[in-house]
Computed example of a mutant assay.
Amino acid sequence: MTLLRYLAVALFVAGCAAPLSQIPPSGMPASVAAPELRAGDHWIYRVRDGFTGIPRGEQRHEIVEVSGDFVRVAGEVERGDGIQIYDRGWNWLRRPATNLQTFEYRPAYRAFAFPLEAGKRWRERLIATDPADGRQFPVWIDGVVRGWERVVVPAGEFDALKVERQVYFEYWEYALRGRSVIREVEWYAPAAKQSVKREMRSRYLRLIAGDDSRPPEFMPVRAGRGGDGGRGAEGVRGFFRARDRGDDGTPRYVEDDWLIYELARYAVR
């Protein structure tokens, strides 16, 4: 089978995949409320590389404090200092971005939009601040709840809502990198008060600078012009596109890590 024929068959099969159930399983509510979180609740995930399948160890995340609208979590992370702060709906206030360092978010990074129900969508614009140097970067989130799915992970079987987020993160480093385009998928299980599986993947704009390189310029993307390398931002107004100002370089998107997390053990009250 030629490569083109193989790709055509793969795309056809993907397009024929059955949609997820919009009806909750027996015993599950049609609308899932935010969980009641308590200090001591913890979750341990097995992490593996999505490209190679190679294990990347385990991560333990434990709630160490619940105060007012804030939930403080201590745990292992790929980047950052491990201190994570959320609101009571698991929306991010302080934690590492996907394949980036720790940021503080205002308003909250809306990872979920409780109450959750199949088909729900949301869009959020926010500012991420790097606490190390105070630099600020715009972020856009498009979220959707795809539906219900039965998920099998090392910790067991769970009825879960599949949540997908497409994120445009305008972080840049001088003459090195521009926008990150991030895809985050989580399977939120009410019984575990948390996602029992998640996949986090991103690509970023690599800036190939010439002799006259200057900081990247962020330009508005108009409808009908893609700002993420031709995939995913067509027709979107209000986003920004990073441009390399080098004279002899061409920016291009490159893949970053693709990590898969599966719940291995947990304890909630």
Rank of each mutant, 00 (worst) to 15 (best):
R237K: 07
P154F: 07
Q166W: 13
E173S: 13
A108C: 10
F12I: 08
P215F: 11
R106L: 15
A223D: 05
A155D: 00
G40Y: 06
A111I: 15
F239N: 08
F158D: 01
R38H: 13
L11V: 12
V139W: 00
W122G: 03
I208K: 10
M200T: 15
D159T: 06
S67A: 10
T52H: 03
Y253R: 04
W90F: 02
K120A: 07
D49A: 07
G235C: 00
R121T: 11
R198H: 13
G235Y: 06
G119N: 00
R177L: 07
R231K: 11
P107E: 08
D256F: 15
L11D: 11
R165A: 09
P25T: 00
V71H: 09
P138V: 02
D81S: 05
T102C: 05
P154Q: 05
A74C: 13
S21E: 11
I23G: 10
D212Y: 14
R237A: 08
W258I: 14
D256Y: 15
R110I: 09
W148R: 03
R203S: 10
V77P: 00
Y171W: 13
V185E: 01
V77S: 05
T2Q: 14
R46C: 09
P215R: 06
Y109G: 03
A189W: 00
G178V: 03
S26I: 14
T2G: 15
D247I: 14
P24A: 01
N91L: 02
K120T: 04
V196W: 09
I54W: 14
A264W: 08
E124G: 11
R46P: 05
A160S: 04
R121E: 04
G68P: 01
V254R: 09
I54C: 13
E157V: 10
S202K: 09
V153K: 00
Q59T: 14
C16I: 12
A155Y: 05
G119C: 00
R38K: 15
L100K: 07
V152Y: 06
V236R: 01
W172P: 07
D142W: 10
Q166I: 13
A17G: 10
D212A: 10
V144W: 12
W187F: 04
P24T: 00
L176V: 04
L20I: 06
T250D: 12
R46L: 09
P25R: 02
Y168M: 04
A111G: 15
V153H: 06
F137Q: 10
A191G: 05
Q194Y: 13
D69Y: 07
R245F: 12
Y86P: 01
R225C: 08
R60V: 03
A14K: 14
W258C: 11
P154T: 04
E186W: 12
G210Q: 05
G226M: 06
A17P: 07
V163G: 02
G119D: 00
A132Y: 13
G238F: 03
R243D: 14
I127L: 01
V254D: 08
Y253F: 04
P115R: 02
I44N: 13
P190A: 00
V221H: 03
R265Q: 15
G230Q: 12
F158W: 01
R38N: 12
G80F: 00
E173V: 13
E262Y: 11
Q59K: 15
G89Y: 10
D256C: 14
W90R: 03
R123Y: 04
R179I: 08
E199W: 02
L37D: 02
D247G: 15
D142P: 08
L176K: 06
L11K: 11
S31M: 08
R237W: 07
G82N: 03
Y86F: 04
V145W: 04
E124M: 07
